[in-house]
């Protein structure tokens, strides 16, 4: 798991330890201004932005990762949507023009 955390979140700054947050809903992660925010994903494609190494490590511990497994579908969806829009526009324009004549 340590390797996984390092791959996703980078090396722990100042050898920070991963604190045991468990499932405390009132826990508030402190922002680390020197840490570049990272976006993590879960298997369902949910997204979370983490702003500190501790926060990132906590999520990776819970099964989140910086690689999304669902992103390809979105790309394809946009692709077919655009093709449909283009064909629809060209088709409607043709009908409109022939109607006008």
């Amino acid at each position: 798991m340590e390797k996984e955390i390092e791959n996703n979140c980078g090396i722990s700054p100042n050898n920070k330890e991963l604190v045991d947050i468990a499932s405390d809903p009132n826990f508030v992660f402190e922002n680390d201004p020197s840490y570049n925010a990272i976006t993590l994903f879960d298997l369902e494609g949910n997204v979370v932005n983490v702003n500190s190494w501790v926060e990132c490590a906590h999520y990776v511990n819970g099964g989140w990762s910086n690689v999304s497994t669902v992103s390809i579908d979105g790309n394809r969806l946009i692709f077919f949507g655009l093709i449909l829009c283009t064909l629809l526009y060209v088709g409607i324009k043709k009908i409109y023009l022939s109607y006008g004549k």
Binding site: V28, T39, G45, V47, V48, N49, N51, S68, L77, I78
Partner: peptide, 29 residues
Amino acid sequence: NDYVGIECFGKVTGLDKVNDTFFLSIGTN
């Protein structure tokens, strides 16, 4: 949040607090 996928478009992708302001992130692929 322009980075996230289209499944998150228009949806909340996180909430953070900096000083006394809450930053609500919205997906805008």
